[in-house]
Design a protein around this nucleic acid. Structure first.
Length: 256
DNA sequence: GTGATCAAGTATATTACTTCA
DNA sequence: CCTGAAGTAATATACTTGATC
């Protein structure tokens, strides 16, 4: 899968030939495993020959716009029909543009692509010397190599963006669920809190004895004293109101 | 100022796949 | 069912533009 191939190495690979990149999102994201790939010799590391060198011969005079190949289409079509699924050589062997009227895009051979891919894994960016060496090795114009690397970086970035997006999406979903759960918990706690005064409204059945007259009476004043209070006063000592609240009194005033 | 290089955006050729007569 | 043409989406290649060094 190309995604796996393109991830995880981009920045490290580019560091050798470019300045340190700014911290990016994927530095913080879990690293995607990179599939091992068959090692191909890199031009600037080794000059081992490729198994099938592209047949196309190109001049390196690169103006970037002289890629059109009106004569190429017939040959290219024939070749693609001939070996559609088993391309063993580069489609099209000439891209000379006599009148510059049309532009033909030429597909790189599998070997060329693999070679470039392998090079890309080593370095996401090329210096001019590497570009020239690579172009020579692959029998391509430096401009083609340059464009290929530009597009490859763009593809990598796009894939990485997709991966990042997917990761953030999952994060968002996870956080939403956590938020839901916490909201629900909060609601339950609030509901519990509103229930607590109800328990306090239960009539108190404490026995009270008047210190003055020493009469014993049952009081039910709890309801009156607790109606407007919250749980903070729930466990407070109950203070009696009325003549008994202030201590001994005249027995004549006792309403017992 | 000039040239080289890059990212981003875009155009277009090619390929693979689907649909349909 | 098989076949070939037409349509279409995806991908690759190449170019343009503007920014930066």
């Amino acid at each position: 899968m190309e995604l796996a191939l393109s991830l995880g190495h981009t920045n490290n690979a580019s560091m050798e030939f470019s300045s340190d990149p700014p911290l990016q999102l994927h530095h913080l994201l879990p690293s995607t495993p990179v599939l091992p790939s068959p090692r191909l010799p890199i031009p600037w590391l080794s000059h081992a020959c490729m198994e099938d060198t592209p047949v196309r011969a190109l001049d390196d005079t690169d103006d970037g716009a002289a890629l059109s190949s009106p004569n190429n289409s017939a040959v290219s079509s024939f070749q693609m029909d001939f070996c559609r699924n088993s391309r063993k050589f580069f489609e099209g062997d000439s891209e000379e543009d006599e009148n510059g009227s049309t532009r033909k895009k030429l597909r790189l051979s599998k070997t060329q692509s693999a070679f470039l891919e392998d090079s890309f894994k080593e370095h996401a960016t090329l210096n001019p010397k590497q570009k020239l060496v690579l172009a020579k090795e692959l029998n391509l114009r430096p401009r083609q190599v340059e464009v290929w690397f530009q597009n490859r970086r763009a593809r990598t970035k796009l894939k990485q963006t997709e991966v990042d997006c997917e990761y953030l999406k999952r994060c968002c979903e996870s956080l939403s669920e956590e938020n839901k759960r916490l909201q629900k918990e909060l609601q339950e706690l609030r509901a519990l809190k509103t229930c607590e005064p109800f328990f306090m409204q239960l009539p108190a059945t404490t026995l009270t004895m008047c210190p003055s007259c020493e009469r014993v009476a049952t009081t039910s004043s709890a309801a009156a004293s607790a109606t407007n209070n919250d749980t903070v006063s729930l466990n407070k000592p109950r203070i009696l109101s009325g003549p008994h609240a202030a201590g001994p009194h005249d027995p004549s005033e006792c309403f017992f």
